[in-house]
């Protein structure tokens, strides 16, 4: 059941993205920005967490989940260190993902050559 919920919710979030791409001609970079920002706002309002409780990775793996992570991080940081958390919370929460992307992308750049599609 857990897996089914992750599959359905994750798939549906991707379908929203697909409709945006095909209907509005938004490029993928804009889709990524939109989803992270929306996820962060919904996270700030505490709504996204409800979806995450229901769907698990189905809500956490898509990019709005990354936005939610930033919002959650800010709130927790403010709770523990106060006003400074406004600045440090978001990046701190996203640090794992961003650093992982940088390290693995750099490794790929060292190892691989560009390929034709």
């Amino acid at each position: 059941m857990e897996y089914l919920k992750a599959f359905a919710v994750g798939g549906l979030i991707c379908v929203i993205g697909q409709i945006l791409i095909d209907k509005t001609k938004l490029t993928s970079a804009r889709i990524l920005v939109l989803f992270v920002v929306v996820g962060c706002i919904l996270g700030g309002l505490g709504w996204y967490e409800k979806l995450a409780d229901f769907a698990g990775a189905g809500a956490n793996v898509p990019l709005p989940g990354f936005g939610n992570l930033l919002a959650k991080g800010v709130k927790e940081e403010i709770d523990s260190v106060g006003a400074l958390g406004i600045l440090t919370g978001g990046i701190k929460a996203g640090a794992g993902g961003i650093a992982a992307a940088i390290v693995s992308a750099f490794a790929a750049a060292v190892i691989f050559r560009p390929k034709e599609k």
């Binding site: 993928s28 560009p114 034709e116």
Partner: peptide, 20 residues
């Protein structure tokens, strides 16, 4: 050249996007 044109005008070749 397909690849130099894609790189200059659009996206890196490895980006997973669809062409309309």
């Amino acid at each position: 050249h397909f690849c130099s044109a894609e790189r200059q005008f659009r996206f890196p070749l490895e980006l997973g996007n669809q062409r309309p």
